[in-house]
Structures are given as structure tokens and as C-alpha cells.
Design a protein around this nucleic acid. Structure first.
Lengths: 336, 336
DNA sequence: CTGAAAGCGCTTACAG
DNA sequence: CTGAAAGCGCTTACAG
């Protein structure tokens, strides 16, 4: 059976292919009778238009690419889910492209991506949303993009972020309000701007409450569960032991909780533990983790929606949005 | 600045566009000098070929679509990671398309997907890999596809699965070998073929060891953490309480563990808990979950690789592969 | 309301 | 080793 194209439909229906195209795209200026006829032929011939041909003519693929490099699977899932929501709303689809920021050849990698698939726009998630190198490349290539959770002050592109520093400040203050003043901190991955922001929120809260900053209490993580487990060992071995731990994300906090439980410490009686992100694991373990809910889906949804609007109308101005992060108190933190 | 196309390059280099095309595709029959010259113009003009135009001419998009409908985020992440590995190896990209099996209009949804993006093939994950309706549609539309973790006996398409029944049998036998004979079971989602397979493995192990099957010990889950929590309540309230629980996946097992811990039961001293999948959460909690490791990435990787090979050469025969599932014993199960 | 022509940027099939 | 012609299946811009 040979392929059915706009030509076969036109021929079969006895109209021009332009008319078929009009029906296809729901354009006006087709008599109801003609429209009816063409629609019937669509069914009879089981016609599906070829998106590639359409793409070539319109110079558009209706595909958005999503870039990420993140050890947190739940973060990625949430990013995808927000991006998909915006895409589907506007009849776009989503192509995913995990890759390494520190890979030997990030730019070559992206260039190759763009050569193998035409993408109408790119949504950059951390750490790509802060990569000057990548951003300059995209500008040079004239590729539309939007930044998610970027700390870059750059009004020349769309940005949707949430207030990491404020969130970290609040959760630290929450611990302080429970009587803790020896609060350990686990940093995130150095390539992510959130790492610095959360660290800064922690420090500011300490300062605000006249608690001296103690570098000994700070461990270097990288957002992975594994790095949290390593940091947990260091922290639980400190003498005297801190009465609370604030990890820069929930996976690392979960690792602290596991080690604490394993070594017969009671949480939160013996030690309070707080995380960041409100990842699923925060509520899947006992005690549930006190954390900061970051609207990851919503950030990505808004970023992609802005991006798509800008693709269809380049005159739309760039928006810079900051969403609120929210403290969620569960069972893992308590009065000292 | 106007777009640089194969024509501008040809003009600038003083050759025909066919020659440029040859250089682009690394075809033979170009003199080294000419090739050199064209390559230089590529750089000078910063030329990137248009994948859509190429796609139209070759009738190919080099994009694979991935269909899923699964409450387990980690399962999806692993599926994507296996699919991406195979795609990138062959210069394909991956488009993701979560949708609902029970949605009012699955077929329309997929038809719309195919109308908005040309896909060279589809990888079906559960429960789609068992959907006769979808499979018939794809056959009618002549769309290449591969099935992951499908129980369907259908040699007319590529299939890669793992042995769910055997895995469930082994883990149940493991519990029996520890002295348990009152073993509760939490079922998965009824739309997934794995649900029936794992249930059957459980029953067969009981039968093999002359333990009478007791329907009261079986709870209806759906693979979500939430459903596991509901089932956990039922099970822990049984009189007498079962000495072990085997949940059809790790999320549900984690929910049982959380409730048990919350209600001051010691795991595994008071009750043993086993899961399935070896999801990250199985090792992120304490005690770590005894479970069955299913090679999700590898299944998907193989399925997508076969699919891509078949796309480039339709004569390649369909393969039916079954990979091994493996028992992983952690701390959540112990002798009664 | 309808259509003939040209074009999107490549590749295929063929000729030399 | 090189290229002119035709075509992939649509849409855009224009004419009537």
C-alpha cells in the first residue's frame, strides 16, 4: 500500500492541495460542503499529515528540548512533568537530553543534538541554566531558550526561579527556633547555583540570630544520596555532635537519617534533620523530613510556556519570575 | 543575518549542492581537495544542516518515542536512561510521552502525537506493552515498535522482558526459608501484566512448600506508595499479624516499612518486609529492603536498540528476549 | 471561496 | 570525481 499524502487526498477529493491544507489547518475560506468532502476523504484514506513536511515548510519542529544533569531522579521527573504540561497545552512535544556540564565537549554535544534534531527551543535546568558558555553559544546560534532555577542576572532571556536563599534561611531559622545552635550543613554540587544560595541562607540565618558560623560543621556534598551518606559520617562523628543537620536536598537528608537510625540515634529526639526540595522520599520515610517545598513543576511549566509563546511571537518580552519556596514541617525536627 | 543552507555553502565554495551533501554525509567520491574546501566553508559560514529537511528527504526523523503510564518515578527514569543509551549510540533522540492507558482516548492521543511529531519508532513500556488495542493500531499505521516487560506472547514484534514470576517465586521462597508461613502479599496495578505474574510466583512458591494460600493475606495495591500505605494498614491489623509481607514493588514495601516503624514494630525482628524492582528507595531507607533486581535499563536499552536496527533494516527479524531477575537480600528480612 | 506556482533544505537516482 | 534534475509533503504568497 502506498503512502497517502496531501496529493492523494486532493486528487481523490477532486480539489487542490491548497484546499486540503486549509481543511487540515482549520483555516477559513472553505465552503462547508468542500470541507465536509475533504474531511470524509481523510477518513476513507486514513490520512495523517506528515509533520516533517509541515515542519520544513513552516520552519518549525514543534519540539522543545530539555537539558539536565542532575543526580536527583525526582527532580528530573518533576522538571519533565512541568515541561510536558506546557508542551502538550500548545501541541508541542518534549525531547529529553541529559548530558554532562563538565563533559569534555558540552558545546559539541549540543551542536550535535541540534544537527540530529531540529528543536524550536531549549529549556535549561541547573546547572545548564547558569552556564555562560552554553548561553553564549545558543545566542550565537539564535536558538530560543528559557532558564529554570538560574541565579544569573540576565534579562536577555526567560527565567523562572524560586527563592532558594529565602527557603534556606527559613528552615535554618526553624531549627534555631527549636533551640538548636549547633547546626551542621551539607552543601550541594558546586556547579549548581542553588548550592551557594542555600549555603548563604543558612549563614544569614545564623548571623541574624547571633550564632557564630563554624566551618567545621559544614560538609561538602553534591546532591547525591551517596555524597549525603559520606557527609553524614563526618557529621555524626563530630565531638560534640551537632543537635541538628540541614542538608541541601532531601536525598542527602535521607542519607543522614538512615545512618542516624542505623547507629541507634533517635530522630528527632537525639538529632533533628532537615532537607530541601520536598522530594517524594521526604514523605516516604519515617520520620518524614522537614523540608522546603520548591515548585519545580510549576517553575518548569512557566518557563516552557513562556518559551513557546516567544517562539510563536518573537516580540514577546522576556519575563523574570521568582516563585515562593515554602517550609514544610514534618517529624524529623523537634525542640532540643 | 540570513540563514545559511546547503545552497549558500555550495555557492560560496563554488561546487554543486550534491557535493556539499556528500561531504556532509561522509560519502566517498569527493576529492580530498574539494572535501577540504567545503569543510572550510562549513566553518566560515558556521553552517549546521537542517535536520527537518534531511528528514523529509530521507523520510526519517531519527526520533524514538517512549510511552509510559507508571506511578513509579524511578522506573520511568530507568526506562528513559536505557532508551537514551541506545538512542544516542545510533544518533537518535528520545521524545517522551506519558499518557493514560485508561484515558478516554488513548488511540486518539497517540494519533495526535504522530501527527504533531514524526516518530521513527515507539518503545512501549507497561502497561502499553500489553495493550492489544494500541498494538493493533500501530500495526495498521505501520509504525515500528518494541515492547518492554510485556507478557504478551506475540512474535510479530520485538520484546524484551524479565522473569517476573520467577523473581516473585524466589523472594517468596526466601521468606519461607526463613521460617515464615504467614506471608502477606500486596498486588500491583491490575492493568500491568507484571501484577499477575508476581502474584502467580508468590502462589506457586507457597504451593511448592505446602503452605495453604489464604486470600485474606492478599491486599490490592496499584504500585503507588499511597496504595502501599493503604494495604499496609489492612495487613498490619490482621489477627494474628502476618510475620512477613511481600509487596509487588519497592514503593509499596517502603510504605509498609514506614507504617510498621511508625507503629513501633521492629523490622525485621517483628515483621519481615520484601519488595520488588530494586528501586533506589530500597537502599535509601533503613533497614534496606530485600527485593528483586529487575534490569529495567538493560531491558529498555536492548528493546530500543533492536527497534533502531529494525528501522534501518526492516528485514531484521523480531527478537524475544527474557533477562534474569535477581534476588537481593538486605536487612528487612530475617528468620522468624 | 479556490487554486497554480514557488519554495522550505535537504537526498535520491541518474548521467557524464 | 562531479553535478543537473526531480522529489520528499507540506505551506506561503499571490492571483482570481
Amino acid at each position: 500500500m502506498k503512502k497517502v499524502t496531501i496529493n492523494s487526498v486532493a486528487e481523490y477529493a477532486g480539489v487542490s492541495k491548497k484546499t486540503v491544507s486549509r481543511v487540515l489547518n482549520n483555516e477559513p475560506n472553505v465552503s462547508p460542503a468542500t470541507r465536509e468532502k475533504v474531511l470524509k476523504v481523510f477518513k476513507e484514506l486514513d490520512y495523517t499529515p506528515n509533520p516533517i513536511a509541515r515542519g520544513l515548510a513552516r520552519n518549525r519542529s514543534f519540539i522543545i528540548g530539555c537539558l539536565y544533569d542532575n543526580p536527583s531522579k525526582s527532580y528530573i521527573t518533576r522538571v519533565q512533568s512541568g515541561a510536558l504540561e506546557a508542551c502538550h497545552k500548545h501541541n508541542y512535544n518534549l525531547l529529553i537530553h541529559p548530558c554532562e556540564l563538565r563533559g569534555e565537549a558540552l558545546i559539541e554535544n549540543i551542536e550535535h543534538l541540534l544537527t540530529t534534531s531540529r528543536l524550536d527551543g531549549l529549556v535549561l535546568t541547573p546547572p545548564f541554566s547558569d552556564s555562560q558558555e552554553l548561553i553564549e553559544f545558543l545566542k550565537k546560534k539564535d536558538i530560543n531558550y528559557a532558564r529554570v532555577a538560574s541565579a544569573l542576572e540576565d534579562e536577555s532571556s526567560i527565567s523562572v526561579r524560586s527563592n532558594d536563599e529565602q527557603g534556606a534561611f527559613e528552615i535554618t531559622e526553624h531549627l534555631i527556633s527549636l533551640g538548636h545552635n549547633r547546626i551542621a550543613f551539607i552543601k550541594g554540587h558546586p556547579d549548581h547555583s542553588a548550592t551557594e544560595q542555600r549555603f548563604s541562607g543558612y549563614q544569614k540565618a545564623l548571623a541574624e540570630h547571633n550564632i557564630e558560623y563554624d566551618a567545621e560543621l559544614v560538609a561538602e556534598g553534591n546532591f547525591s544520596y551517596h555524597s549525603g551518606a559520606d557527609s553524614a559520617k563526618e557529621i555524626l562523628d563530630l565531638q560534640p555532635r551537632p543537635s541538628a543537620v540541614f542538608a541541601s536536598n532531601d536525598y542527602m537528608a535521607a542519607a543522614v537519617l538512615k545512618l542516624a537510625t542505623q547507629t541507634k540515634l533517635n530522630v528527632p529526639e537525639d538529632i533533628s534533620i532537615a532537607g530541601f526540595d520536598n522530594a517524594p522520599i521526604a514523605r516516604h520515610i519515617w520520620p518524614g523530613l522537614t523540608t522546603i517545598a520548591q515548585p519545580v513543576e510549576e517553575m518548569t511549566r512557566q518557563a516552557v510556556e513562556q518559551l513557546i509563546l516567544q517562539i510563536s511571537d518573537p516580540d514577546i518580552e522576556n519575563t523574570q519570575t521568582t516563585l515562593e519556596a515554602k517550609l514544610i514541617v514534618r517529624e524529623s525536627t523537634a525542640r532540643i
